[in-house]
Every structure is written in C-alpha cells, then in structure tokens.
C-alpha cells in the first residue's frame, strides 16, 4: 500500500523539482507562496487527522513565529549569521509556546470542540493585542510592532560571509521549500509508523483505554500539539520572509479558518493529500480571484460545499485512492 502511495508522491515532487527549469521567476515565486501554506496544514493534519484534536487557532503559532522571527532579526541584524539562527530561535519559541498551550489543554482536561474554541480564543487574543500596538511604546528593542499595519523591514533568511551574500529568495527559496516539504513529509510518515504515532492514533479512538494500557496519552498529545505548532511556525516564518511583512490579520478569524478548510477538503488522514491539496486550493482561490471578479468567492464556496457533500474523506485522498485502485491494483 505504501509503495503505491509513493508513486504519486514521487511524481508530484519530480514535477515540483523541474518547474524552475520550465517557468520564469513569477511562477517560481508564486508556487513557493502556495507551498508556504502547506506546513501549517501539515501541522493541523498531524494534530487533527492523527490525534483527532481540532485546533482552530494554528494561526496563533503562525503569527507568533513570524513576529518572533521579525523581532529577532531586526534587533540583531548586525550579528553574524542572524539570517540562519533567528528563524531557528523563532521556531524554538513557537514550539515552547505550543507545548505550554498543549499542557494547559490536555492536562487541564479540555477536549473536543472546547479545544477548538480555546485555541481560537488564543489566536484572537493575539490578533486583538497586536492590532493595537501601533504606538511608539510598543517596541521590542529596535523593532516597532506597528500594530494592525504590520511589521516590515526584517532582513531575509540567509547568510552573509564577507562580500558573498545568500538570501532565501527566488529560486533558492523555492528549492529550500521543496526539500523542506520532502523532509517533513518523510518525517511525518515516520512518526505515523512509529510507536508514538500508533499510540496517538489509538488515543483518537479511545483515550481512556490507551491510558489504561499504561501510556501517558496527555504527554503524547502535548508533544504532538507542540510539533503541530512548530509546523505552523515554519509557515509563519516563510510567509514573513516571502513578503517581508507580517500582520495581525494573519491571526484573525478568517485566516484561522483557512488551514482547517484546506486540510478537511484535501483529506486530513493523509499527509501527502494535505500537502498537495493545500497547494491546489490556494492556487484555485488565487486563480478565481484573478479571473472571476465578484463570482470568485461564490465559486470557491461552492467548491467547498460540493467537496464535503460528495467527498467526505477529502477530495485529494479519494482521488488518490481511486487512481491507486484503477491503475495499480492489477499487479
């Protein structure tokens, strides 16, 4: 089964790898942009698809990571290789925050839809707070938080050695994202197959039974939650780097619903489907906005309704299964 799966995964990545040879800068940057959103979706697929825990506030971690990266890299822009260690530090902050929230949730006995609402409240608190930080008193070192208008002026991810400078932009950024996605997908499949993943999957079905077998479910859920926060953080940092800009509205209600929609529509139980579906959905919504004028949003809504109505498992996952059965089951 896994091998059959791999064929689609590999062919999609081969296409992704040769795209820069065939297309110009615009397409490279635009596809990079689509792929940026896959990490937050993968994080959600991890905690929701595998753990059965719907977090509505993954954007809190997206924003936290983006802002941390911006603040750190603005403040220490003169220090050696800040473009490399500042994103890493920002990710560490995000993962720790994720772990704290996870501790609060799971050791506090919060479950089901309540998790969705608590995480939504967290992201809205962050948004409301950041939106009012326009005043001069809201600075961290040299970095002005700049309220609702958003932060800018952060140096890009990259490294400068003497005269030589490498910024994570354009084609470099593109390949970095592709390889990072490949690595993380591989890692997520490993987690799924691991003991850890099996306990997590089992806890989705029956938490108390898994606990009675002597596994510390709360701890496992907390770690998973922290990992999903980390993945959301990857998206946040890459997004900030892509546009040189991060804003509180990326933690708002509409922004926080997007990953949930991408994941649910693609098929939350399969990481590759989520990766590919997320790219496809962001692409479709952009293309509709370019061509469809005021009907774009209506069309997007229709697509989502039809997908849930007729493809309850997620459209990409169902297509993948269909193709697998049709072409590969004869062997």
């Amino acid at each position: 089964m896994l091998k059959k799966d791999n064929i689609f995964t590999i062919s999609v990545f081969i296409v992704l790898l040769i795209i820069p040879i065939l297309f110009d800068d615009f397409y490279i940057n635009n596809i990079s942009y689509f792929m940026i959103w896959t990490f937050i979706s993968l994080g959600l697929a991890l905690i929701w698809g595998m753990g059965g825990i719907l977090s509505f506030g993954q954007t809190a971690f997206f924003g936290l990571a983006g802002y941390s990266f911006a603040i750190i890299s603005i403040n220490f822009s003169d220090i050696y290789a800040v473009g490399i260690w500042s994103p890493i530090l920002a990710l560490a902050i995000t993962a720790i925050f994720g772990a704290i929230v996870g501790y609060f949730l799971f050791y506090g006995g919060i479950y089901d839809v309540f998790i969705g609402i608590v995480t939504l409240a967290i992201t809205l608190v962050l948004e409301t707070f950041m939106a009012q930080t326009a005043g001069p008193e809201w600075t961290v070192g040299n970095a002005r938080l700049n309220g609702f208008n958003g932060m800018q002026g952060m140096p890009p991810i990259g490294i400068k050695i003497g005269e030589y400078k490498f910024d994570l932009q354009g084609i470099g950024q593109y390949y970095f994202i592709v390889f990072l996605a490949m690595f993380l997908l591989w890692l997520l499949y490993k987690i799924k197959k691991s003991n850890f993943g099996l306990i997590l999957l089992a806890s989705k079905e029956d938490r108390t039974r898994v606990e009675s077998l002597g596994h510390n479910v709360k701890k496992i859920q907390m770690i998973t939650f922290s990992l999903s926060a980390l993945l959301a953080g990857v998206s946040g940092i890459l997004y900030t780097n892509w546009g040189g800009y991060i804003t509180p509205s990326s933690m708002g209600l509409i922004a926080s619903a997007m990953p949930v929609i991408w994941v649910a529509a693609s098929g939350k139980n399969d990481f590759f489907s989520v990766f590919f579906g997320c790219i496809l959905l962001v692409y479709i919504s952009q293309t509709l906005a370019v061509n469809g004028a005021q009907y774009a949003i209506i069309l997007m809504g229709l697509i989502l309704v039809i997908v849930t109505r007729y493809f309850p498992e997620g459209i990409i996952l169902m297509l993948k299964k269909l193709l697998t059965n049709k072409f590969l089951s004869k062997k």
């Binding site: 110009d24 615009f26 700049n146 609702f148 208008n149 800018q152 800009y245």
Partner: peptide
C-alpha cells in the same frame, strides 16, 4: 508580485486600507 513579475507594469496604483499599503510596500 504578479503585476511586477508577470505583467511587468510601469507603475502601480491602489490600496484602500493602510494595512494593505504596508503589505505591498516591501515588495
């Protein structure tokens, strides 16, 4: 980005809210 990289326009006009202006100013 699309206007700059794909359509290769000579000038850009637009934005209503300040936040959207700040969003495109770095680009």
């Amino acid at each position: 980005r699309r206007l700059i990289e794909k359509d290769k326009v000579d000038v850009i006009f637009g934005a209503f809210s300040s936040a959207s202006r700040e969003a495109i100013r770095p680009i």
